[in-house]
Design a protein around this nucleic acid. Structure first.
Length: 826
RNA sequence: GCCCGAGUGGCGGAAUCGGCAGACGCAACGGACUUAAAAUCCGUCGAGGCUUACCCCUCGUGCCAGUUCAAGUCUGGCCUCGGGCACCA
C-alpha cells in the first residue's frame, strides 16, 4: 500500500478492472429481487456539467447500495441524441449533425466513465441511431393504428428562430422554451398524439404515486386542468344555428346578459357576412391577431371587445342577448364561446362595466339581495338562486346539478368535463429527429409505412441552407417514394418527431436494448419494469414525465407492457449553483467537472457534491468544500495506511474483556451503520450519511492513540468503514479493501447490519430542566424508567439547590432524555 | 391573483416522533511539529453579560401572537425569497 492517496492511479486501475470483467453487467434473474435505478439520460451537448455529476452521483449511490443489499440492479445509461443543437452546430461549423452528435457522445461517455459509475454499458441506447429510432417509428405506427396519432390543421405555436412548431408544453410565457423567442401562431397541418384520451387517467393515477414529490404531482394536476361544468347551446337568431358555450357556472345562466365569441370563432364570419358590422369586426380581429401571444394572454392587457350586430337566444329563459367578440376569449379552450354573467364573474363584471352592459344578479349571499348599483366587484361566492324562474330559492351548489340535469333533459345542453391539457403536437420542421413513418399518395392519401419497411432512414448526406428550412425538403431521394398500397408515386412526410417522443420510451428499451426483432421483449420488460427509482431535474416535471406516463399507458393498452405507470419513485434533484446563481456560460460561473476530477479525482467530486446539500435542494458549489472532501479521504487513507503498516501494535490485547473505550468504539461503529443505512434507505440524505462516517473516522483516530487497543475491534471498524464508504467513493473503497488484504470486490459485499447489543450504553446523559431551562447534565444508568430517573436526577445537588425554598408544581421525566421540574416561588 | 416550497452562526448545512439548537464540513483563530512554510495532529469558534474561575446567567432558529411542563418543530396572522399555474369561462 502506498503511503499517499494517489487518486489518479487508483481510479484508472479500478475502472479498467471493472470494464475488463464487465463488472456491472446485469441479466434478468428470477431468483433475485430486481431493482431498476434510472437517471434521466443526457442530451450529448459535448461536455458533462455539474448538474449531470450530481444526478449521476445520486443514482450511483442508490444503485450500489441496492446491489449490496442483494438486489439485481438495472442501472443503465444512454443518449437523448436527436435535437436542434446538432443542426445549429452543422449550420455554424459545417459539421454534419450525426458526426457532431457521435463525437460528443464519445467525449461524454469518456467523462462519465471517469466518474466510476456502475452502469451496464452493454445496455447503452442512442436515440439517433437507427437501431433505436426504428422502434420509435414503430411505436408511432402503433399509435397511428390505434387512432392515437392523427394529423389536423390547427393554430399551432411557431418559433421563428428554431423554424419549427412547438408543443404547448414547450411554450413558457409565450416564448420558446429553448431559445426564448416570442412564439407566433400559425395555422398548419400537423401530427398530434391524442394524449387527451388519457387526461383522466393521467390525473387519477397521480394518487397511486406516493413516491413522487407533491410539487411535481401538483404541477401535473394544474397542467391537466380538469374542470367540471356544462355545455349550453345558445341559438343564433340570424341563422338558427346552435352555438355551444362551456361554463362551470351553469347555476348563473339566468344572469347572462351577453355572449362573447373568440375572434377566431367560425360563427363570427357567418354572423357578420353582409352586415354593416363586417368591416369594423374584421378590423378588430386583425388588431387582436397582431398582438403577440404574450401580450394577448397577459392579465394586464386591457379587455377589449366589440358588438357584432347579432343576437342569440338563452335556452333557459328564451331571452335575446347580444353577441360580442373579445380579445380575452380563447379559441382553443372549451368551445371558444363564453356566456357573460357580469354579476358573478370578475372578468365579465369588468367587461360589462367598461361597455355598459346590463348586470343581473342571480345569486343571493344571505337574506339580502345584492344591490346592483352598489356592487364594486362580482359576487363569486356561493348563495341562493334568485331571478332564476323555477330554480329560485335553491342553493347554487344544488342548482349546478339541477340545471345540468335540465339541460340534458331538454337537449339544450349537456354535462361536460373539460381539460386544459391539449393533444401533443409532435411534428417538427427539422432534420435531426426520428422520421415520421408516413407517406402521401395521390391516390391512396395518407399511408403509413409498412412495418417491414422500417426504419425510414434519415439521410446523412445533407446540406443546410441559411433559411433554416429542413434539408429533407431538398433531398428527392428521401421524399420521392412509391406507395406500398398502389405502387404509384408518393411523397414522404419530411417533418420529424419531437425529441420528447424518443425519451418517452427509452426506459423500456433499456430492459432489452439489443433486441433486433422487437422494440423490447415482453418478458424482459415484465421482469424489470417499472422503474423503482427515477432521478432527474425538476424542469422535466411536466414535459418528459407526462409524456412518458402517457406512452406507458398507451403501450399498456396495446398489450406491450404490463404496467400503467413507468416510474414508481421520483427524486427531483436541485440545481448546482455558483455564487448564488445557476452555472451558465453567460454568467461565467461554470465549474468544469473534468477539471475537478483531474485535480482531486472522481471520488472527491462525488463525495463533495453529495455532502454539500440534501439532493432535492439547490447546492452551492464551493471549491473549498471540495478541498474538505479531499482532506477527508486522505484522513481515511492515513488511518488505513497506519493500520496496515503497524498491525503489531494492535495485537497487545485481543478478544477477552472489552474495555470501556472498546465498547465506546463499537457503539459508535454500529450507530454509524444504523444511521448511514437509514439515511440512504428512507431519506436519500447522503449529506448526513457522509457526516456520520466522518464522525466515525473522528472517533477511530483517538482510539488509535490509546495504549491498549483491541485488534478485533479495530479490524471490525476498518472493514465496516470501507464498506460504508463504498457507494460514495467507489474506487477509493475498492483500493482500501484490497489494501487490508480482502479478496474480491467491496462492491459485492453484503451491506452491514448493525449489532443491537453494541448500541446499548451503560450510562447515558440526561438533562435537568427547571421550568424548561437546562440547568445540569447528569450521567445516569441507561434503561431507567421514568420514576427511577426522576429519583436520581432530583437527588443531585444542583436539583436540590434549585428546588430549595420553592414549590414543586410538576415533574416530567422522559426516560433517555430529561427531567423537567416546574417550580414556583413560595 | 391562486397553489406549493424555503427562511437556523461568517458560509454550506444538522436537529428523522414536540424534549440539550447549531451535528458534520468550510472559513477564521490559537497551539504542537518544522530552520521556515505547506501538509498533518490537538484545541477554540452564535450574541451579550458576569467572574479569581473554561463557573454561571440572559438572549437567540424571518416577524407578531397562541397552544404546551417544554416549540426550529404544532396552530393563527404577517414579511421576504424561490418555484409552478394564471383572461381556462
Amino acid at each position: 500500500m502506498q503511503d499517499r492517496y494517489n487518486f489518479a492511479e487508483i481510479e484508472k486501475k479500478w475502472q479498467s478492472v471493472w470494464e475488463k470483467d464487465r463488472f456491472y453487467h446485469v441479466e434478468t434473474d428470477q431468483e433475485k429481487p430486481k431493482y431498476y435505478c434510472l437517471e434521466m439520460f443526457p442530451y450529448p451537448s459535448g461536455n458533462l456539467h455539474m448538474g449531470h455529476v450530481r444526478n449521476y452521483s445520486i443514482g450511483d449511490v442508490i444503485a450500489r447500495y441496492k446491489t449490496m443489499q442483494g438486489f439485481n440492479v438495472l442501472h443503465p445509461m444512454g443518449w437523448d441524441s436527436f435535437g436542434l443543437p446538432a443542426e445549429n452546430a452543422a449550420i455554424k461549423r459545417s459539421i454534419p449533425p450525426a458526426k457532431w452528435t457521435l463525437d460528443n457522445i464519445e467525449n461524454m461517455r469518456r467523462q462519465l466513465k471517469s466518474m466510476g459509475l456502475s452502469y451496464d454499458w452493454d445496455r447503452e441506447v442512442t436515440t439517433c441511431l437507427s437501431d433505436y429510432y426504428k422502434w420509435t417509428e414503430w411505436i408511432f405506427l402503433q399509435l397511428y393504428k390505434n387512432k392515437l396519432a392523427y394529423k389536423k390543421k390547427a393554430h399551432v405555436n411557431w418559433c421563428p428562430s428554431c423554424a419549427t412548431v412547438l408543443a404547448n408544453e414547450q411554450v413558457i410565457d409565450g416564448a420558446c422554451e429553448r431559445c426564448d423567442s416570442v412564439v407566433e401562431k400559425k395555422a398548419l397541418e400537423q401530427w398530434f398524439f391524442r394524449s387527451t384520451a388519457y387526461a383522466q387517467e393521467l390525473l387519477d393515477d397521480l394518487e397511486n404515486l406516493p413516491g413522487w414529490p407533491d410539487k411535481v404531482k401538483t404541477m401535473q394536476e394544474n397542467w391537466i386542468g380538469r374542470s367540471e361544468g356544462a355545455e349550453i347551446y345558445f341559438t343564433a337568431e340570424k341563422t338558427g344555428e346552435k352555438i355551444p358555450v362551456y361554463t362551470t357556472r351553469q347555476d348563473t345562466i339566468f344572469g347572462v346578459t351577453y355572449l362573447v365569441l373568440a375572434p377566431e370563432h367560425p360563427m363570427v364570419e357567418k354572423l357578420i357576412a353582409g352586415t354593416a358590422f363586417d368591416k369594423p369586426v374584421r378590423d378588430f380581429i386583425k388588431k387582436v391577431q397582431q398582438m403577440t401571444e404574450i401580450v394577448r394572454t397577459s392579465n394586464e392587457t386591457e379587455k377589449e371587445g366589440l358588438f357584432i350586430g347579432s343576437y342569440v337566444i338563452n335556452p333557459l329563459n328564451q331571452e335575446k342577448v347580444p353577441v360580442w367578440i373579445a380579445n380575452y376569449v380563447l379559441a382553443d379552450y372549451g368551445t371558444g364561446a363564453v356566456m357573460g354573467v357580469p354579476a358573478h364573474d370578475e372578468r365579465d363584471f369588468a367587461f360589462a362595466k367598461k361597455y355598459q352592459l346590463p348586470i343581473r344578479t342571480v345569486i343571493r349571499p344571505g337574506d339580502q339581495d345584492l344591490k346592483r348599483e352598489e356592487m364594486t366587484a362580482a359576487y363569486t361566492e356561493d348563495g341562493v338562486m334568485v331571478n332564476s324562474g323555477e330554480f329560485n330559492g335553491i342553493p347554487n351548489k344544488e342548482g349546478l346539478r339541477r340545471i345540468a340535469a335540465y339541460l340534458e333533459q331538454t337537449g339544450s345542453g349537456k354535462i361536460k368535463i373539460n381539460y386544459r391539457l391539449r393533444d401533443w403536437l409532435i411534428s417538427r420542421q427539422r432534420y435531426w429527429g426520428a422520421p415520421i413513418p408516413i407517406l402521401y399518395c395521390e391516390k391512396c392519401g395518407t399511408v403509413p409505412v409498412p412495418e417491414k419497411d422500417l426504419p425510414v432512414m434519415l439521410p446523412l448526406n445533407v446540406e443546410f441552407r441559411p433559411t433554416g428550412e429542413s434539408p429533407l425538403n431538398f433531398i428527392p431521394e428521401f421524399y420521392n417514394t412509391t406507395c406500398p398500397e398502389c405502387g404509384g408515386p408518393a411523397r414522404r412526410e419530411t417533418d420529424t418527431m419531437d425529441t420528447f417522443v424518443c425519451s418517452s420510451w427509452y426506459f423500456l428499451r433499456y430492459c432489452d436494448p439489443q433486441n433486433t426483432q422487437e422494440a423490447f421483449g415482453r418478458e424482459q420488460v415484465d421482469y424489470w419494469m417499472n422503474v423503482d427509482q427515477y432521478i432527474g431535474g425538476v424542469e422535466h416535471a411536466i414535459l418528459h414525465l407526462m409524456y412518458a406516463r402517457f406512452f406507458t399507458k398507451a403501450l399498456a393498452d396495446f398489450g406491450l407492457v404490463g404496467v400503467r405507470e413507468p416510474f414508481q419513485n421520483l427524486l427531483t434533484q436541485g440545481m448546482v449553483l455558483k455564487n448564488g446563481s445557476k452555472m451558465s456560460k453567460t454568467k461565467g460561473n461554470v465549474v468544469s467537472p473534468e477539471e475537478i476530477i483531474n485535480k482531486y479525482g472522481a471520488d472527491t467530486a462525488r463525495l463533495f457534491i453529495l455532502f454539500a446539500a440534501p439532493p432535492e435542494r439547490d447546492l452551492e458549489w464551493s471549491d473549498q468544500g471540495v478541498e474538505g472532501g479531499y482532506r477527508f479521504l486522505n484522513r481515511v487513507w492515513r488511518l488505513v495506511y497506519n493500520y496496515v503498516q503497524d498491525p503489531a501494535k494492535l495485537s497487545s490485547v485481543n478478544g477477552h474483556e472489552l474495555t470501556a473505550e472498546d465498547k465506546d468504539l463499537r457503539r459508535l461503529l454500529h450507530n454509524t451503520i444504523k444511521k448511514v443505512s437509514e439515511d440512504i434507505e428512507t431519506r436519500f440524505n447522503f449529506n448526513t450519511a457522509i457526516s456520520a462516517v466522518m464522525e466515525l473516522v473522528n472517533g477511530i483516530y483517538p482510539y488509535r492513540e490509546k495504549e491498549q487497543q483491541n485488534m478485533a475491534i479495530i479490524r471490525e471498524a476498518m472493514e465496516n468503514l470501507i464498506i460504508l464508504l463504498a457507494p460514495f467513493a467507489p474506487h477509493f473503497s475498492e483500493e482500501l479493501w484490497e489494501a487490508i488484504g480482502k479478496q474480491g470486490s467491496v462492491h459485492q459485499m453484503p451491506w452491514p447490519q448493525y449489532d443491537k447489543e453494541a448500541l446499548q450504553a451503560e450510562e447515558i446523559e440526561v438533562v435537568l430542566q427547571i421550568n424548561g431551562k437546562v440547568r445540569e447534565r447528569v450521567m445516569v444508568p441507561a434503561q431507567l424508567n421514568s420514576k427511577e430517573l426522576e429519583k436520581i436526577v432530583l437527588g443531585t445537588a444542583r436539583a436540590q439547590a434549585e428546588i430549595a425554598g420553592k414549590t414543586v408544581v410538576k415533574i416530567i421525566a422522559v426516560p433517555g432524555k430529561l427531567v423537567n421540574v416546574v417550580v414556583r416561588q413560595r
